[in-house]
């Protein structure tokens, strides 16, 4: 079987292939992002050609072989942005991807930790708290299957990944802007430890398994941020007719009073009040007020105006409102046509 002398080795059995097949193998360079698969045997054979008294001779070396061991590595990557939550929310999901960056097939054990220091509150893991994103929706849905350690530990081929959801409830006692963190850890079931640690005979194909730079363990942390806000809007109307009575007759003035109240701990950002002028009425010019202060009808530097770009409506920009700002009161008048 000398027919591929001088060609790259590959596995021993490749030497029994035809010379042409071997040539094709060497011309298509493998590209494994996770590295050469565990268990691959790489042979090397040198060839020396020379002349002896004018006669060409070719001579082969022995074959020196190396076997590729399994390198265990895993990376966990948070996919979710910061998740906006309210106090006492339930089943809020964080999405992660667990990727086997080693060169062999490997089972991984998953764990959730929501009691991480350095944040403002501890999310409360649901029971169970880890789900496979079975339907690939990126969110927690009925089709997702719960992870049970020791029962359905994900087994990932080299380069393969799986999407995992961490499910937490939010405590009741949280304040706006509070951040709570939750961490997903994936550990190789072969073992974890320092990079370079060897697990004899526990790699793919009976090779040794060696921990790569990740030490066989990966984790990433997601964040919930409390944006706990409720807006109540109340609208009332008083009628004053031209005869000093309260009958809503044509020509009577209707004064609308709208109160806007933000409660709970959150901030309602860039709040804008918008109310169309009712049908069969006409806006009474110069009648807009905010917290008893007059606002002009024009679009200018003050907080409100009569917007006539479409159907006429009253617009008042209330800005960032918190509970501390108290009740915001907008009034305006119309007359009945």
């Amino acid at each position: 079987m000398k027919d591929i002398v001088g060609k790259p080795g590959g596995k021993l059995r490749q030497r029994s292939l035809s010379a042409i097949a071997a040539l094709l193998i060497l011309l298509s360079a493998p590209a494994w992002s996770a590295g050469t698969p565990a268990g691959t045997v790489i042979d090397n054979m040198a060839q020396v050609s020379f002349d002896v008294a004018g006669t060409p001779v070719t001579q082969d070396s022995n074959i020196s072989s190396i076997t590729v061991q399994e390198r265990i590595d895993v990376v966990v990557t948070l996919q979710s942005p910061q998740i906006l939550v309210a106090a006492s929310d339930t089943n809020r999901a964080l999405l992660f991807t667990v990727t086997n960056t080693g060169n062999g097939s490997e089972p991984f054990q998953l764990a959730i930790d929501s009691a991480i220091g350095g944040d403002d509150f501890d999310p409360i893991p649901a029971v169970p708290g880890i789900y496979f994103d079975t339907d690939a929706s990126g969110d927690f849905t009925v089709g997702d299957i719960a992870y049970v350690s020791g029962t359905n530990d994900p087994v990932l081929a080299a380069d393969a990944s799986v999407d995992i959801l961490l499910i937490n409830d939010i405590p009741g006692a949280v304040n706006d802007g509070d951040i709570g963190r939750s961490q997903l850890t994936a550990d190789s079931l072969t073992g974890t430890g320092a990079p370079g640690d060897v697990f004899v005979g526990q790699g793919d194909g009976g090779s040794d398994a060696v921990l790569g730079t990740t030490g066989g363990s990966g984790n990433d942390t997601g964040e919930y941020i409390v944006a706990d806000v409720q807006i109540s809007v109340l609208k009332s109307v008083t009628v004053l007719n031209q005869f000093g009575g309260s009958e809503p007759i044509p020509g009577a003035t209707l004064t609308y009073t709208i109160t806007v109240e933000v409660t709970n701990t959150g901030t309602a950002s860039s709040t804008v009040f918008n109310d169309p002028i009712p049908a069969n009425t006409t806006y009474a010019p110069g009648s807009i007020s905010l917290n008893a202060g007059a606002l002009t009808d024009l679009i200018d530097a003050d907080a409100g105006e009569l917007d006539t770009s479409g159907a006429p409506s009253i617009v008042v920009r209330l800005g960032d409102l918190t509970q501390a700002d108290g009740i915001q009161t907008v009034t305006f008048d119309v007359t009945i046509d």
Partner: peptide, 11 residues
């Protein structure tokens, strides 16, 4: 005219 040839395996 000694020539030594060694392949570099694809891996």
């Amino acid at each position: 005219n000694v020539v030594v040839t060694n392949p570099i395996a694809a891996e």
